[in-house]
Write a protein that binds this DNA or RNA. Structure first.
Lengths: 344, 344
DNA sequence: CTGAAAGCGCTAACAA
DNA sequence: TTGTTAGCGCTTTCAG
């Protein structure tokens, strides 16, 4: 079995202690409780640690201290050919946010023949991570239920309903929609339609709810044109649905539940001979990078991914460190990105 | 420090051993070397393990065995607002490939005030992971140099030049370009231009090299129209460059170095009154999800992310387990996705 | 402020 | 085939 493992080649706390002429404990303290050391001792030990390149063995430290400094993140299973375009940016934010407080992100996914619940139990029982971060959370997400039952620390991107723990952070979608509609109303639009998609995903439902709230708030046509695209994300189907929407009551503005749907709207408008930005105002949601290439540039809502990640990590750490579980979710405002698609 | 850590609450190997009336070692063997146990003992112990939900503590096992079953992946730093769109899909593939052989992916990033080299050294010294996976690798990537110096196992997505270790996997870009150009030539195109971008990134250079190889191979105009977009990814600038390209020698086909650039080409064509697919053939590279919305649909090259991930993981494991470092890189073919943008 | 003792939970090596 | 012994490297506890 040999293998390449350079066992015993690393510098241990013992080595540093000997070199510094102190006990192992003093070296440990230099790292974990420096205030306990006499400044000159601290200096000497710290210098030696630096010079010798000593790093406490992660496993030994974890075994002894019970803390792993690792956060498990369960990536929602995703088709590699059609990945969630926000995934990369969100993970990026997570890594940065966790890194700043000394944690790393471990990607966890059920092993073959294992369901998500079992995968979680394995991580918990094997003490692989100190807590979980979840995304794409459903209102009554089984993962949340399970972790809450186990009493294991977690935080979720996406609100859960009242019966569930409120360890979540989410975007204030309704407010963002109100802002968007307010913007359109201010520019004189009264016939505003909504293009959604029947995915049943809660965050998509929120956008519809936000639209309805806007309709009420601004006293728009009580029965606005609502159209729902097919549940799957097939571009052709979306475009077709968008065309029907445009032909129907000829809205002057359409609020799309996502940038992806907005692209279908652009295509449909072109087919109908309408010019987005002048004949038709369009808004999206998510601010995918690709929106920059849309002509005219798309007005949309950017998710504050970094702020979400920070809040998630900070909440999770509170649970891990102090056993405090948040009593209420946290709603973060989306960033309105106003561009030309709603006209000059 | 109080905290929520349910210390001692876990089932240990001792508990199982007692319950089964065997020694700890026997329980350990049931998991790690089942063939050593008498079938009935194995049965009894395994059942108990199942019932009691025993999972070996990861840290303890790692400390003793020296193996972590964790692969460190260094995410290239990425602007959350404009993330690498392939990132999500690649990570997805990595997680799946590693998961199948019992490894997990740990996202590693330099801590504030730490450079990448130091971050690597920390992971190595702290024995946090068994090996590294790198992506977006440069020809003389300092990360590769560093890991090779340290003699630490790694595998890279992206070729390194001959002076460097050849522990890499890459896409056969030149071949993919030849295929693309062959396709265009077969449809009668002779004036084929290339739209690249002056990023200096090796994979972008490869695409240009592939284009030139195609020009030679098919005996096209010896001085084809080459245009290089601005180094940054600014859409407006790309579109402007694309327009100049189209105005210049009026190519009948343009090979773009990426889907992103191809989008600029679409925009430019529209502005120039050309119809992509009939007046002008266009190809891209990467097969971003968004290409599905382009009208006409874009002909492009899909990176075999899953196969790349599999190869990367398998090579890395060989290095970890047997100390074998590959003597040569592995080139994987890209998948040609032929769609309407090159005409009927 | 520093040191000594103990042991986290596991598996390698050896003994029975 | 199973059990015993030892110790991975660290930090917690308690003594000096």
């Amino acid at each position: 079995m040999g293998g390449h493992r350079p066992r015993g080649r690393g510098v241990t706390i013992e080595d540093v202690a000997r070199a510094a002429g102190v006990s192992r404990q003093t070296v440990s303290n230099a790292l974990n409780a420096p205030y306990r050391l006499k400044p000159e001792t601290l200096d000497r030990v710290t210098t030696l640690i630096e010079e010798m390149g000593y790093r406490p063995d992660q496993s030994a430290r974890s075994l002894r201290s019970g803390t792993r400094r690792i956060i498990a993140y369960t990536t929602p299973e995703d088709d590699p050919a059609n990945p969630n375009p926000l995934m990369g940016g969100f993970l990026e934010s997570l890594v940065a946010a966790a890194g700043e407080v000394g944690y790393r992100i471990l990607l966890v996914r059920p092993r073959p023949g294992q369901d998500q619940t079992q995968a979680f139990d394995e991580v918990i029982a094997a003490r692989t991570a100190d807590g979980f971060l979840l995304s794409d959370v459903l209102r009554d997400d089984p993962r949340v239920v399970h972790l809450a039952e186990r009493g294991f620390p977690f935080a979720a991107f996406g609100r859960t309903d009242a019966a569930q723990p409120q360890s979540w952070v989410d975007v204030d979608t309704v407010q963002a929609m109100l802002d968007l509609i307010g913007l359109l109303v201010a520019r004189g639009h009264r016939k505003i339609a909504f293009l959604g998609s029947a995915t049943g995903l809660p965050w998509m439902d929120d956008r519809l709810e936000g639209f309805r709230a806007g309709v009420r708030r601004f006293g728009l046509d009580a029965s606005p044109t609502l159209e729902i695209a097919a549940p799957d994300d097939d571009p052709a189907e979306i475009t077709e649905t968008a065309r029907r929407l445009l032909r129907g009551r000829r809205p002057s503005a359409v609020v799309a539940a996502s940038d992806w749907l907005a692209m279908g709207l652009y295509a449909a408008a072109r087919q109908e001979g309408l010019t987005v930005g002048t004949d038709l105002a369009v808004t999206g949601f998510n601010d995918l990078p690709i929106t920059a290439f849309m002509q005219p540039a798309l007005t949309t809502v950017r998710l504050p991914l970094r702020r979400i990640a920070d809040a998630l990590v900070s909440r999770l750490l509170q649970t891990i460190d102090d056993g405090v579980t948040p009593q209420a979710g946290l709603l973060l405002p989306g960033d309105l990105i106003v561009r030309d698609s709603i006209g000059g």
